[in-house]
Every structure is written in structure tokens, then in C-alpha cells.
């Protein structure tokens, strides 16, 4: 087990290097720092001095790969590759293009993200599993049929409409909770309700349908037949036998996204004005602040890899057949 985890962590290194190389190429090779400067300064009629000054200010004046003017190890470290890309491995995200400390921003902003994402995930999971069990229990009945139709209809609606509709209905027509914004501490709850509810409702369609498929797949297995042959009742079979087996893919599917909850949801946060990492990223995209986008890409990759590792570990916990070595 330990050996497995160590090996997986070692395996993560080349992947992160790959991610790093990809972003480096994307941000510094496809477009040179000069291009970036010109764009920030407003494209046309920009003097070379202004470009130089902008680069100086944001630390893009160094050579890309090898600094011929430097000595010794600095030849490699005093470069954009090292300063802007490889530094990420030390979780040193540096400064954003607007001059703020990215690490500090992230540590501040992950909490609102979590406050929205965690309840959305957990309550959503409970709701979806409940509905899916209900449909599986009444399988091949009218309830099941129309339930699935409703699910398909619900998953055919863009998440944008869930958000807009939710804001319009709850916020504007019923005036129950504020449409957007956030507050610190316990007062945050009334700002949280709407995004969480909207997030859950938006996931019901695909979630319920997928879980129902998983349940039905299990229901057709041989061991379920043996359970029935014992004389167990249908709901006992469903809860004790089918649910436990179907939960394995469900739980491991959830575990893989757990670390990514830190990043939050881009859409929800920007619509509801939640000051989390999702809206942070969107703002960065809209302001074309590449330092932040780069940092978030790297952070996302790290979290994803952690998620994969957690998935494997969680398998060993819920499935007695799986052993890691």
C-alpha cells in the first residue's frame, strides 16, 4: 500500500512536468511576452519602450529558456521558464499581472468555494441516490418511465438556465434570498442557499439517470438472484445488496472530484457573486491575467492527481476485492 502510494506520487511528477510544459508552450511560445504586453497596452500604436516597461514591471523581460548573460546556474534559473513555470512546483505562484500575491488570494478565496461546493456535492449525492433508488425499485413501471423522461428533459436544459431561472424565480419574484453576493461567517448561509439549491437541481437529471443505470446493472447480477432465492424482500435486496455494490462506482466517482472542490464552480460563483476561486479564475480570464490562469491550471492538475490517488485508496476501503500493490 505504502509502496503503491509512493509509486503513484513518483508517477505524478512526469505528469505535472507535462502540464507545466504544455502551459509554458501555450503562454510563452505561441505568443511571446511582447505580444502579451502589446495586448495589455492596447494593441495599436504601442511603443517598444512601453512594451519593455510592461515586461519589466511584470517580470517577463528575461529570456525564455537560457539566459546567456547570466553566470553558472543562473543561466537556467534566471529565465522565464524557471521563474514563471518551474517555480510552480514549489507552490510558489508568484504575483498576478495586476500585482497581487496569488498564493494569498488562493488561500483566501478557497473557503467560499468550499462553502458552496461541498454542500452542493453532498446534498446532491443524497438526493440523486434517493431518486435513483426510487426509480430502480419501481423499475419498468410508469413511475420509472416518466422519471427517466423527466431526467432526460432536465439534463437537456443548459446549466445557465437553471441559474438564471433560479435567480429570477427565488430572488426576483419571491424575494426570498439575495440574488448574489457573499458574507463572512454565519451570515453567509442566506447567500449560500440559492447557489446550492440551483446546483443540486441542475445535477438531478444526469445524476439520477446515471445512478439508476448503475443500480439496474447490479440488479441483473447473479448474486441478486441468490439473495432473492434466500427469500429476502425486494427492498432488503435493494438496500443491503444492490446499494452496497452500486455505491462502489458512485463513491469512487465522487472521491475523484473531492480535491477539485477547492477550485469551485466557475459559472455558479460568477453568477452569484461568490468570492471564491471559480470567480477568481473567471475574472482572471476576462482580465487576461495569465499568471493566475497558469497558477490555476497547475493547481487543478495537482488536485486532479490527488483525486486519482484518493480514488484508488477509497477503492480498497469500500471493495474488499481490491488490494493495491
Amino acid at each position: 500500500m505504502t509502496a503503491y502510494i509512493v509509486r503513484r506520487m513518483l508517477y505524478a511528477l512526469p505528469i505535472l512536468l507535462g502540464v507545466n510544459a504544455l502551459t509554458f508552450v501555450l503562454f510563452f511560445v505561441v505568443n511571446s511576452p511582447d505580444d502579451m504586453a502589446r495586448m495589455h497596452l492596447g494593441n495599436k500604436r504601442v511603443t517598444a519602450e512601453a512594451v519593455q516597461a510592461w515586461k519589466q514591471e511584470h517580470g517577463y523581460e528575461k529570456p525564455l529558456l537560457i539566459n546567456h548573460s547570466a553566470q553558472g546556474a543562473d543561466m537556467l534559473t534566471d529565465t522565464i521558464l524557471y521563474e514563471k513555470s518551474l517555480r510552480l512546483f514549489l507552490f510558489d505562484f508568484g504575483q498576478s499581472d495586476s500585482g497581487r500575491d496569488i498564493s494569498h488570494d488562493i488561500s483566501q478565496r478557497m473557503w467560499p468555494s468550499l462553502a458552496i461546493a461541498v454542500p452542493t456535492l453532498l446534498v446532491g449525492l443524497a438526493v440523486n441516490i434517493t431518486f435513483a433508488l426510487l426509480l430502480a425499485f419501481f423499475r419498468a413501471s410508469y413511475l420509472d418511465f416518466w422519471g427517466v423522461v423527466l431526467c432526460v428533459a432536465m439534463m437537456s436544459i443548459s446549466s445557465l438556465f437553471y441559474i438564471i431561472g433560479g435567480q429570477f424565480l427565488v430572488g426576483k419574484l419571491l424575494n426570498l434570498v439575495p440574488i448574489s453576493g457573499y458574507d463572512t461567517g454565519l451570515h453567509a448561509w442566506k447567500f449560500m442557499v440559492l447557489p446550492v439549491v440551483v446546483g443540486i437541481v441542475g445535477s438531478i437529471g444526469s445524476g439520477t439517470r446515471w445512478y439508476r443505470t448503475l443500480f439496474l446493472e447490479e440488479i441483473h447480477r447473479d448474486y441478486v438472484r441468490s439473495a432473492r432465492a434466500k427469500g429476502l424482500s425486494e427492498h432488503w435486496v435493494l438496500f443491503r445488496h444492490v446499494l452496497r455494490n452500486a455505491l462502489i462506482p458512485i463513491l469512487t466517482g465522487v472521491v475523484v472530484v473531492l480535491p477539485l472542490l477547492f477550485i469551485g464552480s466557475l459559472l455558479t460563483e460568477s453568477f452569484f457573486g461568490i468570492p471564491g476561486l471559480g470567480s477568481y479564475t473567471i475574472d482572471a480570464i476576462n482580465r487576461q491575467d495569465f499568471a493566475i490562469v497558469r497558477a490555476m491550471v497547475f493547481l487543478g492538475a495537482v488536485l486532479y492527481i490527488i483525486g486519482l490517488l484518493l480514488t484508488d485508496i477509497s477503492y480498497t476501503m469500500v471493495d474488499p476485492r481490491v488490494r493495491l500493490d
Binding site: 505535472l16 502551459t23 501555450l26 503562454f27 490555476m296 491550471v297 487543478g300 486532479y304 492527481i305
Partner: peptide, 18 residues
């Protein structure tokens, strides 16, 4: 391992500049 939206965002931004 790169979150899809971020990769798209990064690529589209670069294309816009280009």
C-alpha cells in the same frame, strides 16, 4: 489532469491574442 475549462480558457485566450 488539466481541468477542461481552464485548458480551453488558456487556449482560447492565446488564440485571441494571436
Amino acid at each position: 489532469s488539466i481541468p477542461g475549462v481552464l485548458l480551453i480558457a488558456a487556449a482560447v485566450l492565446m488564440m485571441q491574442i494571436y
